[in-house]
Amino acid sequence: MNNVTILKIGETIIVPIQIDLHDAAAKSLQEDILKRIEKYGSKGLIIDVSAVEIIDSFLGRVLVETSKMAKLMGADTVIAGMRKEVVLTLLHLGLAMGDLKTALNIEEGLVLLSRQQGRNNEKSIR
């Protein structure tokens, strides 16, 4: 059980994390997100971390994992709004977040996703 709102807008779900998540809450959020993707057949997922003050190895790993799982379910993930202090700390920590798509904010995230979906459609037409 966690208290993070999951919003559905068209084929995208948006998850603004507004609270300090402990490990179990992060895992439970991951599960909720995947359930929603399954339920709505979402094509895009934006996790807004602009209010998140700390991303440590656990939360970092959960974000990377969630993105990979979402991809396997047919949804592209964008992590939006990561604070510069958090970015620098992740670099110090040596956590590889390489595969994650990121955007400055939710709006940019939506643009990125629509471009990505355009490319996906092109591929499927070919």
């Binding site: 700390i54 991303i55 440590d56 656990f58 604070r83 202090e85 620098l88 700390t89 110090h92 920590l93």
Partner: peptide, 17 residues
């Protein structure tokens, strides 16, 4: 600074875990 706080509190999170 906010940078120092974030860096050190992340270490604190790892060690407390």
């Amino acid at each position: 600074s906010l940078m120092d706080q974030t860096r050190v509190v992340t270490a604190v999170s790892e060690l407390a875990r």
